[in-house]
Amino acid sequence: MTVLLPGSLDEALQAMASHPTALPVAGGTDLLVHWPQRPELHRQTFVDLSAVQELRPLRWTTDELVLGGLTTYWDVIEDGRVREEFPLLVEAARQIGSIQIQARGTWAGNIINGSPAADGVAALMAYDGVVVLDSTRGRSEIPLAEFYSGYKQMRRAPDELVTQIRLPRREYSVQIFEKVGSRRAQAIAKVGVTVTRSASGWRVVAHSVAPFVCRCTALERCLESEASVGSPDDLLPAIREDVSPIDDLRSSAAYRERVMARVLYYGLLEVCPSFH
């Protein structure tokens, strides 16, 4: 196994450019799972990002919160301003694994791992997060909502690194993060739904109910139109348009669909006059 150890962002981008099959490593919390039982990985080339200081800081500008490529969940949990302005990031972070995972896992890693169950991605997407990808060829910026195209399929070239995640600062009137796991802590989501409302409109993001974390545009239209919703079942047509849950070891499609409708309904009942 080969690992490249860049000390700066430039070196990291060079390393990615010259090793097209290399995998970047941030916190390692996904990559190293069952590492001894996955010998095929031990023959890979890796680029260790941990010493790239430029990727660390979490920054505020007048109109954006900018997470670095190495910003961890714990960095966000510890930031009082994030708690004020983007509370769902903190909520999601606190429900990702345990403190041991929160201390190491990064938001960028959550995006690039591409799991349909990524709690962090759901919260970022509901805040209209934008992924900033850098390579020696230049920079591209892609809204997270347009980043995925299929299961673990995403718009990232092999030599690109996520160097920033930019979130617009807005006033939100509704912020809901609901994750249903198999256990109260440290569980992978079986169903997740995240809702925000700002001057830019409603955002509904679902996770663990489709091949990738996704915006639910039919549900968003339903909310924008203020259509009357009198029970969880009233949400099912839109849910069926937006997501495609499956049966797997963790849960069933029927459960996922039903529970998504129910957590959405009861979550919005408090905040939406059209829900009764």
């Binding site: 150890l5 490593v25 916190g27 190293l32 260790d48 010493a51 041991q100």
Partner: peptide, 19 residues
């Protein structure tokens, strides 16, 4: 503890603890 924070050492590549 890695730099004072609890981490799972089974998920830490050894090369990442340098310094």
């Amino acid at each position: 503890l890695l730099d004072g924070l609890p981490v799972d050492s089974c998920l830490v590549p050894a090369y990442q603890v340098r310094g």
